[in-house]
Nucleic acid binder design. Structure first.
Lengths: 348, 348
DNA sequence: GCAGAGAATGTTATCGATGCCAATAGTGCG
DNA sequence: CGCACTATTGGCATCGATAACATTCTCTGC
């Protein structure tokens, strides 16, 4: 039974509105749901009553009765990394525009259990659908079951049977970066990849390798970071000790910052001695020194696309799960330049 | 009426569990709510039935009946700025730990209408309480009413009657930064502030001014940015033209990146010619060149504190709204140094 | 051995909105 | 002028869980 604790001052219900407007509750419901079959005069009366009472539809009741909540859940990794925030932002905008609320469940780690529990928290809340914005490496019976019972769209790098996938073409991103460096005249391009479990990272690595192979260049062994600037810094220190490395494609701008710092500290100039291309185009990329050449990722757009897919799926559960992807774009700034043969020796 | 669309396969309800366990629905409810007055044997039977049926409590029904949703809403500004993401992160963690779900409503602008509509979206969703994580400058009747009817905790810089406030001591942050620079021997310290409407920005400005005055130094006119690196860059260009500016305290790391870039481009060295202190301690601050001296803000901690306050208030609506604040901390890196009298002339 | 406190469990009304179906009021057309 | 038909509107059961209250059972203490 509902709370009676407050001083008898209960917020108005549909029945109250109906009474004031002199119609039935059902009609009020129809007006509020934009049903076509309501006379303008009646609609006006109802709306006036709604306004007068300051009535707001009770979402809980609505949800219980209709079985839908007009809420979409987002499972996302809890980090400060730019990319996640940008995607979430895009999702929220698109959802709001479509009249959906957004409920977030963050997970601190990527293991099956953590993701599963984030999913079930959302399921318990009764979300209509879920956007999985984490790389789902291993699935589990529990996860499969949850994604089967709740419409789910996976962003970039989730592997489940019951989900549609929306992605940015990361292979293309890597190709753009690699080609740019080769076109500048570099013999080959090194790569600092993201963590192997992330599909995004793997795709970028593949795209980079493919580009080099297509151009008939040597493929240096890739280094691996964890997206953090600190890991970029560590990789940068390694790179600095390799005399003939003149160009590197880094899988995130944040790591690129670390790489550049490491290179400078060890006396390698950017871009004179070594060119660096990042990925993401975070806002600070332009204010790094030197300003970072990078591959911009349409994160917000992807978030919006994910919402669109989810809504389409909700509207018509039978629709075919056609995968979609959006394209990244190269942004050339000042961290890349043609190789200068003379100065490819580390000073350190 | 609930959806009948699916093939008659309705998820199990409490009644089903009750039937399987051979008890009443009420008892099931008690078991699930950890009521004390249930025999262990009964509890076990119920839990077994729950497990067997894969039963999950229906949140909508729960909410409708009990009047509470165990969900807290967060109103936040839609940006990629580090600080907002960090706060939200802290909120989510704390909320999850307390068994609360989090629903987010972002607003693109700070005007009364936008914030009001974010608040009402949350209210419509039936959140138990709200954390206002945006600077609320002007209130409105609508907002006052919403914050009165829904328990609200404001983070840093919201001005409403009906809200508790949790904040980081920004005055202290500014004092730490300013004192650090004065202690290094600078005659005075310039300031690049955040947007005037943000209480955070105003407090930092006040703290900075107070520190200078306390030390009997001249107070230069503050410049103002909008938190973005681009605005920092613009302010940096102005600063570069002021020959006797040897130290600057910037109200955010992101702006500080822009400032440093502008200074370097115009030939002023950091920190030799001019010292820069940022605010926030974003992850990239350490990888700026030079590594940025900054005032670290315990954002996540503040988010957690906000949740704690809100929950306390929910548990005991009568409790006094004691304001709380957490303390920032100075992190000295390499962007600050004693002034070198010789080189305080711009090269440009 | 019995009254009465208190634990354990069941009964019932209700929360607020919606869907289905019936009822009523108009409308067009033969 | 009346019938078939449609646009409006109301009645009622229902979603799933909870709170208040009732009831049954189990022990103490005297």
């Amino acid at each position: 039974m509902a709370k009676r604790s407050d001083g008898g001052e209960r917020p108005p219900g549909m029945a109250d509105v109906a009474r004031v407007a002199g119609v039935s509750a059902q009609t009020v419901s129809r007006v509020l749901s934009d049903h076509p079959n309501v006379q303008d005069k009646t609609r006006a009366k109802v709306l006036a009553a709604v306004d007068q009472l300051g009535y707001r539809r009770n979402n809980a009741a609505r949800m219980l009765s209709s079985g839908r909540s007009r809420t979409i859940g987002v499972v996302t990794l809890q980090t400060d990394f730019y990319s996640r925030a940008a995607v979430t932002s895009g999702i929220e905008n698109a959802a709001r525009a479509a009249g959906y609320a957004v409920s977030t469940a963050t997970t601190a780690s990527l293991d099956t259990f953590a993701i599963g529990s984030a999913l079930s928290r959302l399921a318990d809340q009764g979300v209509d659908g879920v956007i999985l914005s984490v790389p789902l490496i291993h699935s589990s019976e529990r996860i499969e079951q949850l994604t089967r019972s709740t419409p789910t769209v996976a962003i970039d790098g989730s592997r489940t049977d019951a989900t549609e996938v929306v992605a940015i073409d990361q292979t293309l991103a890597a190709r753009l970066a690699t080609r740019h460096l080769l076109d500048l005249g570099h013999d080959t391009v090194w790569h600092i990849a993201g963590p192997g479990q992330w599909l995004e990272a793997a795709s970028r690595r593949d795209g980079w390798r493919a580009s080099l192979e297509a151009a008939g260049r040597a493929v240096p062994p890739p280094l691996e970071g964890d997206w953090s600037p600190a890991s970029g810094y560590r990789s940068g220190l390694v790179l600095a000790r390799i005399p003939d490395a003149t160009a590197v494609f880094v899988a995130s701008d944040e790591m690129a910052f670390g790489v550049i710092r490491a290179l400078r500290e060890t006396g390698r100039r950017v871009p004179e001695d070594i060119s660096v291309v990042g990925t993401d185009d975070i806002e600070l990329a332009e204010y790094c020194s030197p300003p970072l050449t990078t591959v911009a990722q349409p994160f917000a757009q992807m978030g919006a696309l994910a919402v669109a897919h989810l809504l389409r799926h909700l509207a018509d559960p039978g629709a075919l799960p056609e995968p979609a992807s959006v394209e990244p774009r190269l942004v050339v700034r000042a961290s890349t330049a043609p190789p200068s043969r003379s100065s490819s020796v580390p000073r350190q």
